[in-house]
Design a protein around this nucleic acid. Structure first.
Length: 734
RNA sequence: GCGCGAUUAGCUCAGUUGGUAGAGCAACUCUUUUACACAGAGAAGGUCGCAGGUUCAAGUCCUGCAUCGCGCACCA
């Protein structure tokens, strides 16, 4: 027995060494997996492809426990696939995360140097962000390694590198040529704090109390309306009522003009189905420039659009107390004016959802702007048939209504969430007024426009100033990481797409999963992955959401240093079903450190019990040992079935339970007599059984606890294979 | 308004296809020349949110309700 078993297991000194051994073996890269072995069914090992992409972490900082869980689950998937003989590929990468990263760096510069992005200029800011992103990247990569991820570093990608940039420009041009990308003047979500547009999905609604004001525009206008934003009423161009509302029937089609808070306004009374006669007075002031809903109504009724708020959230019109004031101040001023004029009829408090920008927290101001969009409802030809992007996104996913869908969602309940989201999907605004990201591949010259993969020839062309929504590049991830659009490169990797599985957080189902389905089905005509496995949120020990403001971050590296990566992995996996939130704290991680210790000591006992024994061939087993082997086989069959059905949380728990409470507590204890006894047959039977159960358990535990199992594997007398192979490519016990 | 999830031992949670409840932590008793005290043995602790229903049998399936949480829509 190796002396190292005389000391307690020390993950700190073992894990880095083992990781290095794995990396040197080259087996993280599927091209290097040995082909000389056969699977149990006789087929060649490492032929059938298995592929998965790492959801690229944002280069905004460091990994948190959520990322640690993601790495643990994915590494379990990959290691299991490899052990069951799959040609397993796991592609790493990072995400430039456009707005998120730029705002982090901008804040930092503001704090340290009191400078804005405009003080620095585009080029200098980008240089600073690159330095920051590089540093974050290096930290993240170290963390991914520490977790034991068996990932192919030779294929690492970045959403903003040269290859991915080519993919983005190629995809953009294709969509533009198909008429699916267009530039349009529409009311969009404007974030005054970040000074950029954002998509509908980047809005976070916050429940707040708001005042609902009920008033008349003037004494001469007979219709009373209600609003929480009186200051926007300076931009009203219509009053809308429900077509069947008899109270207002007589006014429909009429026009009223008045001076409202210093601004001349003209209001046409229109009838629109969208108006809820039950709300307020049943009449609605239509502000086409400052409400997406109103803008849509204005389109239907050909109403003029009048902007009264600018990009900085300040009023552009109105009397002296209103013009150039922030909307909140202007609101008070307008209310004051209404009171003075005797027009205010009612003031009441109501619950309201305020739209805020996900990244900056700024209150979203709908503004009319010229932006780039992806048309999700526009028909285009696909294999002779007319389809829309929405159609493609719906038909890709398996559901009760669409059993032909190729993508299975785990857990199933998210199928409906996904379909519900698509139902409500509007055209996707993809242009951003920030500097960090893929510059929109469009060039302008007087009246000409050029959309291309490379800049146009000739002088006088100016490229669009805007960048693309970060999710545009992430949407291409499953195939941009496999070489697309380089034909030769992509052909080499063709077997890996569609990828086998996508494992990611349920919170980015819309942001990312949906966009990947859109891009892959549109560009390649195939799904990006066959299965989506969604995990939930990792919360702190008290169940609170982990956030910077609460300061309750559980640092993965700290936990790894304290208890070992294997223990951290187990604590994040056991009893955490797909899609469910989980809690993490010291206690749970510590429990699996104790488990590591148990495995280590049981190994020590087995190795010392078999010293000197010849176990090269299977002896005749006693009845009790036969029963033990049968029990082991049943446990493995059960666990294998859990593995095949994505029930890692159960498989891990069962392995833990079997090893500790069946193998260690019962089998080892009960075998002590036979091992130390005088009956040679009984002794060798017990010895062989102990070693067999230990060996099998170590294999089955490997995907979950790769470090300690690999370390022990090297010391096991292995009759199956005399050349010492790494456990990571051993056969899964079946 | 539409939808989803949760409700099981003091705490945190498992319980895959229905067969009279399990784990970790905490607390209790005993055990230290024992592979492991980072341990073992044992005992204790639950009318599985409430009310109905289906069934020989329900934590598990169905209906309704309650509380908490979440998503989407609305948000004049």
């Amino acid at each position: 027995m190796n002396d190292k078993f005389l000391k307690p297991y020390n993950p700190g000194t073992t894990e880095d060494r083992i990781y290095e051994t794995w990396e040197k073996s080259g087996f993280f890269n599927p091209d290097n997996l040995p082909r000389d072995q056969k699977n149990i069914d006789g087929s060649s090992r490492f032929v059938e492809p298995f592929s998965i992409v790492l959801p690229p972490p944002n280069v905004t900082g460091v990994l948190h426990m959520g990322s640690a869980m993601m790495l643990a689950i994915q590494d379990i998937m990959v290691r299991y696939a490899r052990m069951t003989g799959k040609k397993a590929l796991w592609i790493p990468g990072t995400d430039h995360a456009a707005i998120a990263t730029q705002s982090v760096v901008e804040k930092q510069i503001k704090k340290e140097e009191d400078k804005s992005r405009h003080d620095l200029g585009r080029e200098e800011l980008l240089k600073r962000i690159d330095i920051f992103a590089k540093k974050s990247h290096d930290t993240i990569v170290t963390q991914v390694r520490k977790m034991g991820a068996s990932i192919d570093w030779s294929r690492e990608a970045f959403t903003l590198d040269e290859k991915r940039s080519l993919a983005v420009r190629t995809a953009f041009r294709k969509m533009y040529e198909d008429g699916l990308i267009y530039r349009g003047h529409r009311v969009v979500n404007w974030d005054p704090k970040g000074q950029t547009t954002i998509s509908d999905d980047e809005i976070v609604y916050e429940a707040r109390k708001a005042k609902l004001y009920t008033f008349k525009y003037s004494k001469d206008i007979p219709i009373t309306i209600s609003t929480t934003r009186p200051e926007t009423k300076l931009g009203d161009t219509a009053i809308a009522v429900h077509p069947s509302d008899t109270r207002y029937e007589k006014y429909i089609g009429k026009e009223f003009s008045t001076t409202f808070a210093g601004e001349q306004i003209t209001l046409k009374v229109i009838a629109d189905e969208h108006v809820d006669p039950e709300f307020g007075t049943g009449a609605l002031g239509v502000t086409p420039a400052h409400s997406i809903i109103d803008w849509e109504m204005a389109q239907r009724h050909e109403l003029p659009l009048k902007q009264v708020i600018n990009e900085y959230g300040k009023m552009t019109v109105g009397s002296l107390t209103i013009k150039d004031k922030k909307t909140t101040e202007a609101r008070e001023a307008v209310v004051e004016w209404l009171k003075v004029e005797g027009l205010l009829e009612k003031e009441e408090e109501i619950d309201q959802n305020v739209a805020t920008a996900e990244r900056t927290g700024g209150i979203v101001e709908p503004l009319p702007k010229l932006q780039w969009f992806i048309a999700v409802n526009k028909k285009f030809k696909r294999n002779g048939e007319e389809v829309t992007l929405k159609n493609l996104m719906v038909s890709a996913v398996k559901s009760s209504e669409n059993t032909n869908g190729e993508i299975a969602v785990v857990p199933e309940r998210f199928e409906r969430v996904y379909l519900n989201w698509i139902d409500n999907l509007r055209d996707w605004c993809i242009s951003r007024q920030i500097w960090y990201g893929h510059r929109i591949p469009v060039w302008y010259k007087t009246d000409e426009i050029f959309v291309g993969v490379e800049a146009p020839q000739g002088s006088g062309w100016t490229q669009d100033e805007d960048t693309l929504d970060t999710w545009f590049s992430s949407g291409l991830w499953t195939f941009s990481t496999l070489g697309w659009p380089d034909g030769t490169e992509f052909a080499k990797h063709r077997e890996f797409h569609p990828t086998t599985i996508l494992e990611t957080g349920q919170d980015i189902l819309f942001f990312w999963v949906a966009r990947m389905i859109l891009m892959s089905t549109y560009i390649l005509g195939e799904v990006p992955f066959k299965t989506v496995y969604l995990h939930g949120l990792v919360r702190d020990a008290k169940g609170q959401k982990i956030s910077k403001s609460l300061g309750n971050n559980v640092e993965p590296l700290e936990m790894i240093a304290k208890y070992g990566a294997d223990a951290v992995r187990m604590s994040l996996v056991v009893a955490v079903g797909p899609g469910n939130d989980s809690k993490v704290g010291d206690d749970k991680i510590k429990a699996y450190k104790l488990f590591s210790n148990k495995i280590w000591n049981a190994t020590r006992f087995v190795l010392s019990s078999i010293e000197g024994a010849d176990l090269s061939s299977k002896p005749i087993l006693g009845e009790v040992d036969q029963a033990r082997i049968k029990e082991l086989d049943e446990a493995i069959t059960d666990i294998t079935s859990d593995m095949n059905n994505y029930r890692y949380y159960l498989a891990a728990e069962k392995l833990y339970h079997y090893f500790w409470h069946t193998f260690a507590d019962k089998i080892i204890e009960e075998s002590k007599g036979a091992v130390n006894g005088t009956d040679a047959d009984a002794r060798v039977s017990a010895q062989w059984t102990l070693l067999h159960i230990l060996t099998t358990s170590i294999k089955a535990l490997h995907p979950f606890m790769p470090y300690i199992t690999e370390e022990i594997w090297a010391e096991l007398p292995n009759s199956e294979n005399n050349e010492k192979r790494l456990l990571m490519i051993e056969k899964w016990p079946a």
